[in-house]
C-alpha cells in the first residue's frame, strides 16, 4: 500500500517535471511551424499545415540577411575569445598552482573579485572609445576575455593541482625551456579540462546578450542574441518568425549539449564547488 502510494507520488512528480520542462520547447517548435495568422493566436495548438520552410527563408533573408551576418559575428566572437581564454587561463592557472609567490594572494583576490563585481558599464564604453575599440569585434573579444578569465583560471588551477609535479620535473631535467614545458608537456595533459572550458565558455559567450548590447551596437555588428532583440519589435505581429528565430539560435547550444553534456555538467559543478 505504502509503496504503491510512493510509486504514484514518484509518477506524478515525474509527469509534472516532464510537462514543465518540455512544454516551453514544444511551444517554440510548434510556433515555428505555424503561419502568421495562426501563430498570432499565441495558443498551444497543432499547426494547420507546415510553414517551417517559408518562415526559415523569411527570417534568414530579413533585413539583408542580418541573421547570417549575426551568426558569422557570433562565431568569430566565440571562437577567438575562447581560444584566448584557454591560452591565457591555462598559463595563469599553471603558474598559480605550481609556484608560491607573494603575488598569489593578490591573484586569488582578483579572481574572486572578477566573479562577483558587476562590470562598470559606462566607464568601459568610455575606455573602449578612447582605445578606438568601441563597437568593434576586437573590443568585444577583449571584453569577453577579461570578464570570463576568472572562471577559466579557477577550472585550470583546480585541474593542474591534480597533475603530479614529477612530470614537469622530468621535463626540466631533460633541459626543456619553460615555453616548451608548458606547450609540449603541460598543455596536452590539460586536454580534458580544456574541453570543459571550451564548451562552457562557448555556450556562455554565444548566449551573451548584455555585453554586446552595450559594447557592440549597430546592425552590421549584431550578434545572434541581438537579432532576437531587434526582431522582437519588428516581428511584433509575426510570432511565427520570432519563434523560428528562437528555434534557430537554440540549435548550436543543443548540438553542444548532445555531444558534451558530461563535460558541461562536470565543468559547471567543479568550478562551482571549488570556486
Amino acid at each position: 500500500m505504502r509503496s504503491r502510494a510512493s510509486l504514484l507520488g514518484g509518477a506524478i512528480a515525474l509527469l509534472v517535471s516532464l510537462v514543465v520542462f518540455v512544454v516551453p520547447f514544444a511551444f517554440i517548435v510548434l510556433m515555428a511551424f505555424k503561419d502568421r495568422r495562426q501563430a498570432n493566436l499565441l495558443d498551444f495548438s497543432w499547426p494547420n499545415g507546415v510553414h517551417l520552410w517559408d518562415n526559415l527563408v523569411t527570417v534568414v533573408t530579413t533585413r539583408n540577411w542580418m541573421l547570417v551576418t549575426a551568426f558569422i559575428n557570433s562565431t568569430i566572437l566565440t571562437v577567438v575569445s575562447v581560444t584566448l581564454l584557454v591560452l591565457l587561463g591555462a598559463m595563469v592557472g599553471f603558474v598559480l598552482s605550481r609556484r608560491k609567490t607573494r603575488w598569489n594572494p593578490l591573484a586569488e583576490f582578483l579572481i574572486l573579485s572578477g566573479l562577483m563585481i558587476p562590470p562598470a558599464v559606462v566607464p568601459t564604453i568610455w575606455l573602449l572609445q578612447g582605445l578606438q575599440l568601441f563597437g568593434t569585434l576586437s573590443g568585444m573579444i577583449l571584453i569577453e576575455v577579461a570578464y570570463n578569465l576568472p572562471f577559466t583560471i579557477i577550472l585550470y588551477r583546480a585541474f593542474i593541482a591534480t597533475i603530479p609535479r614529477d612530470l614537469d620535473e622530468a621535463a626540466i631535467i631533460d633541459g626543456g625551456r619553460p615555453m616548451d614545458i608548458f606547450f609540449k608537456v603541460i598543455l596536452p595533459l590539460l586536454w580534458p579540462v580544456t574541453v570543459t572550458n571550451i564548451v562552457v565558455q562557448s555556450v556562455g559567450i554565444f548566449n551573451d546578450f548584455t555585453n554586446p548590447l552595450y559594447y557592440l551596437p549597430g546592425n552590421a555588428n549584431a550578434t545572434v542574441q541581438l537579432t532576437l532583440y531587434n526582431f522582437q519589435s519588428q516581428f511584433n505581429t509575426a510570432y511565427n518568425l520570432l519563434f523560428t528565430n528562437i528555434a534557430l539560435i537554440t540549435i548550436p547550444p543543443l548540438i553542444v549539449f548532445l555531444f558534451f553534456n558530461r563535460q558541461i555538467v562536470a565543468g559547471m559543478t567543479a568550478g562551482a564547488v571549488k570556486g
Binding site: 591565457l88 603558474v95 563585481i117 566607464p123 576575455v145 577579461a146 570578464y147 626543456g176 619553460p178
Partner: peptide, 28 residues
C-alpha cells in the same frame, strides 16, 4: 632567471583583465 614557472605567464592575462575590467571599475 629561468624558473620553469615563469612569472611573465601572468602578464597577458593581467594586462587584459587590468585594462578592460579593473580600470573601468576604478574609474567608476
Amino acid at each position: 632567471r629561468r624558473s620553469p614557472y615563469p612569472g611573465w605567464f601572468f602578464l597577458p592575462a593581467a594586462i587584459v583583465y587590468g585594462v578592460f575590467f579593473l580600470m573601468p571599475t576604478f574609474a567608476s
